Simulated scan of single mutants.
Amino acid sequence: MKPLITAEELYGLGPTKSLVLIDARSGREAYTQYQAQHLREARHVDLDQDLAAPVANAAHGGRHPLPTVQSFAEVLGRLGIGPESRVVVYDDKAGANAAARFWWMLTAVGHRAVQVLDGGLAAALASGYPTSAGPEAPDASPAYAAMSWQLPTVTIEEVERATQTGSHLIIDVREGARYRGEIEPIDLVAGHIPTAVNIPFSSNLAADGSYLAPELLREKYAQAMGSRESAEVIVHCGSGVTACHTLLAMAHAGLPVPNLYVGSWSEWSRTERPIAIGLA
């Protein structure tokens, strides 16, 4: 199943028993906004509570470390998602935030029938997709049968070795000003991981907020990767969330999903490891 679905394709599915819609908007007002209006029958998932583990110290795992597989399996059961479910997830940032993270996590536990809504909530509303208000109460299912994360991740130690040996291409998907160290609105220190190259996740999108065509994305990432395989690529962002947007873009392009550095800049920048500034 392709990783993206358009609003028109979603509308064309019609009501089916196996379809599960997930609203993954994030931020302090996310649940309030969800209750005010969401796609009909969409169930809400919370980035901080459902898609990340509690943070004791961001220097050990970053601001959004992965929860245990068992914890996520229980979240999936609460949402009514089982092995037979067809899942479509959206957010209000063109899939650039928690929708892509949810896609990565569900794919990583072995679920294949999961797609991100291309263009996000705005595209669905523009297409006339029906909406509801208030909470949704899906029938809970048993915890999803998942044993491990099946997509590749790397630790901070592995990233550090890559900066020293050149064994991997490290892609930083944050906006250019954060990469260059000109601003840092979220984390404590500005800059980037030495040797990392900057390919902002926003460059995966067309002007209307939809993903670029697969062939354009394939050309872009093939040029960046050169002779490297996806297994020799590490992708990170600020806290392991928007990095999933680029992983989704690469899957949309027909490329194998590279390594995710979950801790990302929020972990690296809180340690004593080197920090680069500018374009170096």
Rank of each mutant, 00 (worst) to 15 (best):
Y221V: 06
V45F: 00
T68D: 11
S264H: 07
A137S: 12
L125K: 10
T271H: 05
V69L: 04
L10D: 09
D187L: 07
H245D: 00
L212V: 12
H245S: 04
G82R: 07
V241Y: 09
K2N: 13
G27R: 02
I170N: 03
Y261Q: 11
L76Q: 04
I5F: 01
V241N: 11
A30H: 01
R43C: 05
G12K: 13
V233T: 08
I234Q: 02
S239G: 14
V116Q: 00
E184G: 13
G62W: 01
A231W: 08
A122T: 11
M105W: 02
E8M: 07
A145H: 09
E182R: 12
H44L: 09
I275P: 08
A73Q: 09
A36E: 14
D208S: 02
V20A: 05
L121E: 12
H236Y: 15
V197Y: 10
V109K: 06
L47W: 12
W268Y: 14
A177C: 08
R43K: 10
Y211F: 13
P258F: 00
M105S: 05
E74R: 15
A124N: 07
H192G: 01
S127R: 14
T246M: 00
P3E: 01
D46T: 07
Y129R: 09
A36D: 13
K220T: 12
Y129P: 03
H192S: 10
Q70T: 15
R174Y: 02
S264W: 01
L39Y: 05
E267F: 06
W268P: 01
Y34L: 03
E158F: 03
A276Q: 02
Q115M: 07
E267I: 08
Y90I: 09
Y144N: 07
L217R: 04
E219I: 07
P194L: 08
H252K: 11
E84Y: 13
P194K: 03
L106C: 08
L19G: 02
R40S: 13
H64S: 10
D187A: 01
G191S: 06
V88I: 03
L217C: 04
S18I: 10
N198H: 11
L216G: 05
P135W: 06
I81V: 15
S202E: 15
G14E: 06
A56E: 15
R218V: 08
L13E: 15
A30C: 01
M105F: 01
E157S: 15
M225G: 06
G226D: 09
L255H: 00
E41I: 07
P15W: 14
I81F: 06
A24R: 02
S203L: 13
A96H: 12
H38P: 09
D187R: 02
L255M: 15
A145Y: 04
Y90M: 06
A59E: 12
N57H: 14
A140H: 09
G176L: 15
L216M: 15
L47T: 04
E74S: 08
E272F: 05
R43D: 05
I277F: 13
A100F: 11
P152F: 02
E182F: 10
R178F: 03
G77R: 00
M225T: 02
I170C: 10
S210L: 11
S227C: 05
P256C: 06
P185M: 05
D23Y: 06
F201P: 01
A231R: 15
G181R: 14
G166L: 00
H38M: 01
W104V: 00
A253V: 11
R112F: 09
